[in-house]
Structures are given as C-alpha cells and as structure tokens.
C-alpha cells in the first residue's frame, strides 16, 4: 500500500493525487496527474463511484450526477475542484 501523506497542510493537489493513487491503485512511482478514464485500466465504473465519493468526503463538496460524468481525468477533476473552491 502506498505511503499516504499525513500533513493537514498538504495542498489540494497533493490530497487529490493521493486519492487518485489510493482509489485507482496506481503503481508506485506512477504519475497520477496523467490518469484518465479509458486510459487507466483500473478506472472502471465502480472505481469512478468510489473516486467521486472520496473526493466529496475529502473536500466537503457535493458532486451532482451531471458533474460526476464530466470528471473523466485527473485534469478535469482538478479543474472542477478549482471551480467549486474545494
């Protein structure tokens, strides 16, 4: 299992990357910022549900069904969080 950051002062990006690594079970050393639906094999429909729930829980945001479908990559997710202020 990946070593997880524990510092509450971590940036939003560091926490988001930790969630992507944890939920998508990315290999050690891989770059989570390149993860994308269709290209990351572990990113199936159930992982997507877990990813959205984890992001909601971690950042205290609510992601509606419509928004959830638009989160198709690390980059779109990062941008979404930046837009909603998470």
């Amino acid at each position: 299992m990946d070593m997880l950051p524990s510092n509450p002062m971590e940036t939003t990006e560091q926490r988001l990357q930790a969630i992507f690594r944890g939920v998508l079970e990315l290999p050690a050393g891989s770059d989570p910022t390149t993860a994308a639906q269709g290209q990351t094999p572990t990113w199936d429909s159930m992982a997507h549900v877990t990813l959205v729930a984890a992001i909601e829980a971690e950042f205290g945001v609510t992601i509606d069904a419509g928004d959830s479908l638009s989160l198709t990559s690390y980059e779109t997710t990062r941008q979404f969080l930046a837009d909603v202020g998470g």
């Binding site: 549900v49 959205v52 729930a53 909601e56 205290g60 609510t62 992601i63 509606d64 069904a65 959830s68």
Partner: peptide, 18 residues
C-alpha cells in the same frame, strides 16, 4: 444525499461515510 444517490446509487452522503 440525493445528489450522490442519483449520481452513483450510493445513498450515504460522502461527508457521512465515516
């Protein structure tokens, strides 16, 4: 959370999962 339930079928609000 109705939003979460609509989105994924998961009825528990993410903030309350713990």
């Amino acid at each position: 959370s109705l939003g979460t339930y609509f989105g994924s079928g998961m009825p528990v609000a993410a903030r309350s999962m713990g």
